[in-house]
Design a protein around this nucleic acid. Structure first.
Lengths: 189, 189
DNA sequence: ACTATGCTGTACCAATCGGTACAAAACTGG
DNA sequence: CCAGTTTTGTACCGATTGGTACAGCATAGT
C-alpha cells in the first residue's frame, strides 16, 4: 500500500525531466519507458490515462513544490523581504541555476496550453499575486507592487528562455540578481 | 522564374504560424498540407529537405524581418531613442500585441534548439547586442546598457509566455510599456 | 501453504509520422 | 501547336506513435 504510492511518486522527477526536454507532444512513450526503466504495463498501471495523467501528475508536483518553497514563504514570512529572498533562492535551485527550463512555460507556448489551461494559468497567476502581496507588505504601493511582480515573474521566464537559447546559464544568474535588486528599491517605478 | 520564388515565399507566413502553434516536432506534414493548400508533391518540390528546410526558411524570414525592422533602426537611427522607439513599435506589431508567441523562443525551449542552434542563438545575441549599443549611445554606461538590454529582451520573451499562459494579451502590452520606460531612464540601475 | 492482489513484460493494434516515387497536368518559350 | 520544364496529386513506404490485452510473476494477508 505505502509502497505503491511511493513507487508512483518516484517516477515524477524522471517524467518531469522528459516533459521539460521534449514538451508534452514530443515526450514519447518509448523514451518514457527507457528512462523510467518501466514497461508500458507498469506505466499504465500507475497512470491509467496515459501521458495526460503523467503530465497532470508532474504539473501537480510542480505546483506543490512552488506552494511549499515559494508561495508559502512569500505569504507567511513575518519579514516580507525574507520571503522574497527565499523565493529567489528557490528559483535558482529549482531551475538549476539556469540549466533547466520551466516546464509550465514549455507547456504554455504550444497547443499543450489548452489541454492544461487551468494548471498553466494558475501557476503564473498565483505566483504573480502572492509576490505582489509580499511586495506591498514590504512597502511598495499597490500599483507598483503588481507591476514589479509581473516584471519579476516574466523576467525569470524570459531569462530561462535566453539562457537556454544561448546555452549560457550565467545569463540567468545575472538576471536573477538584478530582479532581486528591483524588489528592494522602495519607491519603485 | 519569378513566379517560383514568389510561390515559395508565399508559403512562409503559413508555415511560420504552424511552427509557432505546434513547435517543430508537433508541426505535422498533414497540417502543413491542409493549411497551405499544397500537397506533399509541391511541398517537397519547394523544400526538398522537408520540414527541416521549411523551418530554416521560416527562421531566415524572421531573422530578416528583425534585421529590417528592429536591428537596422537600432543601429542606424541618428537619434538612438528613436531607434529604440521603433523597436518597441515593431515588437508590438510582430507579436500581434501579445496574441502571438515567439517562434524562436518556442524552438529554444525543447530539443529543437540543438537542430537550429546557430539561428536560435544569434537571434537573441544580435538583438541584445544591438540594443545595448543603442542604449549606450543614448547615455547609458557600458555595463548598465548591457544589463538593460538583457532585461528588455528577456522581459519581452517572458511577457509573451505569461500573456499566452494567462490568455491575456494586455499583460504583454503593460510589460512593453514598462520596459520602454526603462530604456529612457538615463542614470539606469 | 494457499489465495488474492499488485505489478510487470510482451505482443499487438490502428493511426499517423516524415519522406519517396512517379505519372499526369499545367505552364512556358519558340 | 509542339517541346520542355515546372508544378501537382496520389499511392505508397517503413517506422513510430499512444494505447490495449493479457498472461505470468511477485508479494502480502491469513
Amino acid at each position: 500500500m505505502a509502497g505503491r504510492i511511493a513507487a508512483r511518486g518516484d517516477l515524477i522527477p524522471a517524467l518531469a525531466e522528459i516533459f521539460r526536454e521534449h514538451g508534452f507532444a514530443g515526450a514519447s512513450l518509448s523514451e518514457i519507458t527507457e528512462r523510467t526503466g518501466l514497461g508500458k504495463g507498469s506505466l499504465y498501471h500507475y497512470f491509467p490515462d496515459g501521458k495526460e495523467e503523467m503530465a497532470k501528475a508532474v504539473l501537480d508536483d510542480v505546483a506543490n513544490w512552488f506552494e511549499n518553497n515559494v508561495f508559502a514563504p512569500l505569504r507567511e514570512s513575518k519579514d516580507p523581504a525574507a520571503g522574497i529572498d527565499q523565493m529567489f533562492r528557490a528559483v535558482v535551485s529549482f531551475f538549476h541555476s539556469g540549466r533547466r527550463v520551466c516546464l509550465v512555460g514549455t507547456f504554455a507556448l504550444d497547443e499543450t496550453r489548452d489541454r492544461f489551461a487551468a494548471e498553466v494559468r494558475s501557476y503564473f497567476t498565483a505566483w504573480t499575486e502572492v509576490l505582489a502581496a509580499a511586495l506591498k507588505r514590504s512597502g511598495f504601493d499597490t500599483k507598483s507592487a503588481r507591476e514589479t511582480a509581473e516584471d519579476v515573474v516574466a523576467g525569470i521566464q524570459g531569462a530561462l528562455v535566453l539562457a537556454r537559447a544561448q546555452n549560457d546559464p550565467a545569463l540567468y544568474m545575472r538576471a536573477i540578481k538584478r530582479l532581486r535588486q528591483r524588489t528592494r528599491i522602495t519607491g519603485a517605478g
